[in-house]
């Protein structure tokens, strides 16, 4: 997609008030307290250890740092991470 087409696409989706996760494929992170995070719209797992989870999203990489990280379920569209979450970084 050229930059001109991309800007037009952004303008249309903004005018239609489409949510960014649908229009742009932006990663959606829902954090509940410090113990639970629900992540949607990712491409895949790049790295997963007990203290680090690195995910590939459409426009960035999402890093979840913490201790005892544990994926309670994992599907193509959505995953739920439980454990002690200390940081969430966009790389």
């Amino acid at each position: 997609m050229s930059s001109k087409t991309k800007s037009l696409y952004h303008k249309i989706s903004a005018a239609a008030q489409l949510p960014r996760d649908l229009a742009d494929g932006a990663v959606l992170v829902t954090v509940t307290g410090q113990e639970e995070a629900c992540i949607e719209n990712y491409k895949g797992i790049l790295e997963y250890t007990e203290c680090r989870l690195l995910l590939l999203a459409k426009h960035c990489r999402l890093e979840v740092l913490g201790a005892g990280l544990y994926i309670s379920y994992y599907t193509e569209d959505e995953m739920k991470v439980e454990g002690h979450i200390e940081q969430i970084n966009y790389l």
């Binding site: 790295e47 250890t49 379920y73 994992y74 599907t75 193509e76």
Partner: peptide, 24 residues
């Protein structure tokens, strides 16, 4: 990690995924 991504793309649902010493 590739195995996990392939599972996701083949719509294989995993739960209680936990990292351990030599894998998952």
């Amino acid at each position: 990690e590739r195995f996990l991504n392939m599972c996701a793309s083949h719509r294989i649902i995993l739960w209680d995924l936990k990292a351990c010493d030599a894998g998952y």
